[in-house]
Amino acid sequence: MDTPAVESHRGDRNPSLIRISDFDFSYGDKQALFDINMDIAEHEVTAFIGPSGCGKSTLLRCINRMNDLIESARIDRGKVEVNGLDIYDERVDATELRKRIGMVFQKSNPFPKSIYENVIYGLRIQGINRKSELDETVERCLKGAALWEEVKDRLDTSGLSLSGGQQQRLCIARAMAVGPDVLLMDEPCSALDPVATAKIEELIHELKNDYTIVIVTHNMQQAARVSDRTAFFYMGNLIEMNATDQIFMSPDKEQTEAYISGRFG
């Protein structure tokens, strides 16, 4: 037994893709995030955990500027950089940014259109209508989302006719179609049964070869299973961010330990 047979889970990190620095964020008078600093490495799964209202979803929605759509949302301080580019620079077009940073939501929300049209929605609204290109995208993305085999014979049926887990995978395929580098997932399994959840988790594990994934989850076991790094938030503060093994086996902070072991409050 000279060399370890199992890959080390605490090895070197991939290079950083998203850097959040000194980030303060408010909804109206209520500050939601306090002085967040973190690096999100590319081709890793980063999980955000913490109790409800801890700011984890808020931070996720800051990464693709979905919070722009909320009236009272305001950045007080700090930056979010992707590949070194400040995404809140006034020259940045938020709609273009969202094509590069896709998002999957808590409640699966396919459009009431066919499966085919759901996948290519992002292309259609860009004015892409070439049949061959659309066909290719549909097949590639549905395969990528591990849904192709289940739906290839009924691409023209409504996306809403699928089961919950299939719908969520359809939403992932749809997000992949616009060619993002990053996939943000906001509690993607919270409405799914364990089998559908397991499928999504398997998919996430596959997808990290091609995408950088940030996942918000209430389910700590899910964070433990799928993520490489875990960030624990509490009341708008980033309490601890570390390799997932480290967080779940020997966290540095007492608050983290209390939360993950269910001794909270």
């Binding site: 979905m66 094509k99 896709g102 939501f105 409640k107 459009f111 992002g122 609204i125 860009q126 997000a175």
Partner: peptide, 13 residues
């Protein structure tokens, strides 16, 4: 549902 709007925005609409 706001989700349908969000999904559309998130796809760059």
């Amino acid at each position: 549902p706001q989700g349908m709007r969000d999904a559309s925005f998130a796809l760059g609409a």
